[in-house]
């Protein structure tokens, strides 16, 4: 069974995280501050750490530094939790090498979108749910099944990604899907693909929201991660949206990603060229 360590000084946040992790079939270990969290991480070697930023005794940034400087805990994936959604925080956490950032208070869907990057989706075959071990099941059988599931998952992700990310005359165009979770799910794959595109000489990304009349918080959060990722790769970005409401919610993120807003894909492509 996988282990998740929750480090937060708030009892209610720890209780809500434990409830949200209910479907994942994981063991949950809790700590009330960064110092205890680092100790618990060394002791339990969790598969994932959910780390609050603001805590007494030792805050999340200091705890993260301590975790990264210890070979025993260096490679454990960390998702930061914070009450603030400041644009510079997203960038800072990305630079610190965390796998995700969740703003409190959060809905289960937002939580799942981040946690699934490490644990897989609850109920998915590729997820991290413990498998009921039949006495006759051999290690070889289990490994083969896990590999097949992983291949299937990877191909499904690639299939989704194919429809979302395309190459238009030397410019990467990412189309925002209707489902918030779809984008959140493929963000790591999008980031990998952007690196490949950049290596192939593309230095610009257009995020196309022209067919979208409503942008959810989860979509914005996933979108910002893509934009920040692209900027960290030295790529220029533009976002196109026809809907005025969508445009308004995106303008708040212009500074974070240094992005350009346009009303059509053609205008966005033209401005980037």
């Amino acid at each position: 069974m996988k282990t998740v360590l929750t480090v937060d000084d708030s009892k209610v946040v720890r209780a809500l995280i434990a409830r949200n992790l209910g479907d994942y079939g994981v063991r949950v270990v809790e700590a009330e501050n960064g110092r205890d969290g680092v100790r618990a991480a060394r002791l339990h070697r969790p598969d994932l750490i959910l780390l609050d930023v603001t805590m007494p005794v030792m805050d999340g940034r200091a705890a993260l530094t301590a975790l990264r400087s210890d070979p025993k805990t260096r490679s454990i994936p960390v998702i930061m939790l914070s009450a603030e959604s400041r644009e510079d925080l997203v960038g800072e956490f990305m630079r610190l090498g965390v796998v995700g950032h969740i703003v409190k208070p959060f809905l289960q869907a937002t939580f799942d979108a981040e946690v699934a990057k490490v644990l897989g989706w609850p109920g998915d075959t590729q997820g991290a749910r413990p498998v009921d071990r039949d006495a006759s099941t051999t290690v070889a059988d289990e490994t083969a099944r896990a590999l097949a599931a992983a291949r299937e998952a990877a191909s499904a992700t690639e299939e989704v990604l194919q429809g979302l990310l395309e190459d238009v005359n030397g410019c990467a165009v990412l189309t925002l899907p209707e489902q918030a979770t779809t984008l959140a799910r493929v963000v790591p794959a999008v980031a990998r693909r952007l690196r490949v595109l950049r290596d192939a000489g593309q230095d610009a990304v257009v995020v196309d929201l022209v067919g979208t009349a409503c942008v959810t918080a989860e979509q914005v959060s996933s979108l910002v991660r893509v934009l920040v990722e692209a900027r960290s790769l030295g790529m220029r970005t533009a976002v196109c949206a026809r809907d005025e409401g969508v445009m308004t919610s995106l303008r708040g993120w212009e500074a974070t990603a240094g992005t350009i807003c346009a009303t059509t894909r053609e205008m966005a492509l033209g401005q980037l060229r």
């Binding site: 708030s10 009892k11 209610v12 946040v13 209780a15 809500l16 409830r19 009450a83 409190k104 208070p105």
Partner: peptide, 23 residues
């Protein structure tokens, strides 16, 4: 519901938990 369960269990006041969760 989780907040309410904690309050009913005597773990703290609703205002404290609400401020911790919603700010």
């Amino acid at each position: 519901t989780t907040l309410q369960e904690l309050v009913d269990a005597g773990e703290g006041t609703s205002q404290t938990f609400e401020r911790e969760w919603y700010a």
